[in-house]
Design a protein around this nucleic acid. Structure first.
Length: 439
RNA sequence: GCGGCUAUAGUUCAGCGGCAGAACGCCUGACUGUGGCUCAGGAUGUCGUGGGUUCGAUCCCCACUAGCCGCCCCA
């Protein structure tokens, strides 16, 4: 019989690696809380129309990467409906913002999420079909200050802080402004016109993009094309006065906060909803998938989804890629490779008669906050020691004598020394330092 | 979706057209309540799946599947 395996592009996360995932998530939650972001959890699947309208019908994500299915009507009263596993989370958050009329209070909504997303791409390093994103959105009616360049700068500064606190070394912030929707449309035409005479001299991909998606030409990495790309009009020149001022104010705020950035006039993003500020934090250690996170402003998204005017800015970071980056960093520093940290104690019952008392003892110690592992009375002491040595700092030996006297034997694997400890003192004793503990 | 590389023990990997290998890990060692280090033994495989060539295929050929790397796209 063929054995069942995790489907292509999905994977199991196992300990001890999950400890790293937890640490990252915990750090993110703490940082978000300091910036007054609250957690939102949206459904993992939504009406297909949400992504078509929000992310954009023409994007690769919507046109060929979504997991979509027809949810059949099972009763007369039900309607069949096209559903889709979320390929990103911003559309869902904005949908929830509209649905619950979160703008009515007049205040800025600051929401973060952590969860799996789904895209049917070819799996690769740092790219999975089920992948995890941590993201945040600051959205609200214009009167709440949601449109202020200060929001952009605050979010970017928060990200710099978060990456630093995660001890991601060597991140790079690239920032650009793609202007308003009208600016973008205008630039697209300018670019298309400028490409027409030079495209035949460029690579095959660029010749195709020049027609289908001119903005993507700016992303081209073929060395021979670079001189040509340099001569193309810059989007900065197509921005209206307001967008220019907004961008300048964002950069000024970043300067004031001391957040280093690189202006990248060629940074374009693949989702239709982005306006004005767009950014990406990259890292060299990720290979082809070098973006740790990306985001930007989406001032028209709420209206595109049928909601009120609600400018916003947000980002999504690839949790899988953060983990990869941190693992690579840790491998470079041998002593910080994460390992299973040993338990505080291993309880070894020396006979089956000691099994039940051992569980009672474990319960007591665990209640006091100790991390405790427990063996089995059928193990010979030698075997118990071998097992315990692998997974705990100390072994608590519970034999007939110990049970009778209420004084257990504790052996410290680090020092090799052994002591007799009364049950009353055991918890405090095990909480004491391991390294220089006399016993 | 396209191209290249890869698939052998729990893990990392050698290997060869003719009995399947190493290292690490695992198990057992005077069966009395003392581990680590060392020593002596031992177990472990549909050689990714399906076809083809051959007297004979883990090895050569084809297809499929999966993984990695790149393209594309993105986080």
């Amino acid at each position: 019989m063929a054995t069942l395996k995790a489907v292509r592009g999905t994977r199991d996360l196992l300990p001890p690696e999950t400890a790293l995932w937890n640490r990252i998530e915990q750090t993110a939650r703490q940082v978000f809380a300091r910036y007054n972001f609250g957690e939102i959890r949206t459904p993992i699947f939504e009406d297909t129309a949400l992504f078509a309208r929000g992310v954009g019908e023409e994007t690769d994500i919507v046109s060929k990467e979504m997991y979509t299915w027809e949810d059949r009507a099972r009763a007369q009263s039900e309607k069949a409906q096209s559903l889709t596993l979320r390929p990103e989370n911003t559309a869902g958050v904005v949908r929830a913002y509209i649905e619950h009329q979160l703008g009515e209070g007049g205040k800025l909504q600051k929401l973060y999420y952590i969860g799996p997303q789904f895209r049917r791409e070819r799996p690769q390093k740092g790219r999975y079909r089920q992948f995890w994103q941590i993201g945040a959105e600051a959205i609200g009616p214009p009167s709440s200050g949601s449109e202020s360049p200060l929001r952009d700068a605050e979010v970017l500064e928060m990200l710099a802080t978060l990456l630093d606190e995660l001890s991601i070394a060597g991140w790079r912030l690239e920032i650009n402004s793609v202007g308003s929707a009208a600016d973008r449309a205008r630039y697209n035409e300018v670019l298309r016109a400028a490409l027409e005479p030079v495209a035949p001299k460029m690579c095959a991909d660029c010749r195709r993009r020049a027609v289908t998606n001119p903005l993507r030409v700016l992303d081209c990495k073929v060395p021979e094309d670079q001189p040509i790309i340099e001569t193309l009009p810059k989007i900065g020149n197509s921005l209206d006065q307001e967008s220019k001022e907004h961008f300048a104010a964002v950069l000024a705020a970043l300067d004031a906060a001391g957040v280093p950035y690189h202006r990248n006039a060629r940074l374009v993003r693949g989702l239709d909803y982005y306006t004005r500020t767009t950014f990406e934090f990259t890292h060299g250690g990720l290979g082809a998938q070098n973006a740790l996170l990306g985001g930007g402003r989406y001032d028209g998204l709420s209206e595109a989804l049928g909601g009120p005017r609600a400018p916003g800015i947000g980002f999504a970071m690839g949790l899988d890629r953060l983990v990869l980056t941190l693992e690579a960093q840790q491998r470079a520093l041998p002593e910080t490779i994460y390992i299973d940290t040993p338990c505080d104690a291993y309880i070894a019952p020396l006979g089956e008669a000691q099994n039940a008392p051992a569980l009672a003892l474990a319960r007591e110690l665990r209640k006091s906050g100790l991390r405790v592992e427990i063996g089995d009375g059928t193990f010979r002491l030698k075997k118990s020691l071998e097992i315990a040595n692998k997974l705990a700092w100390r072994i608590v030996i519970l034999g007939e004598d110990e049970l009778k006297s209420g004084i257990v034997t504790v052996k410290n694997f680090l020092t090799g020394l052994q002591a007799k400890v009364s049950r009353e003192e055991l918890s405090a004793y095990l909480k004491g330092p391991v390294g220089r503990n006399p016993a």
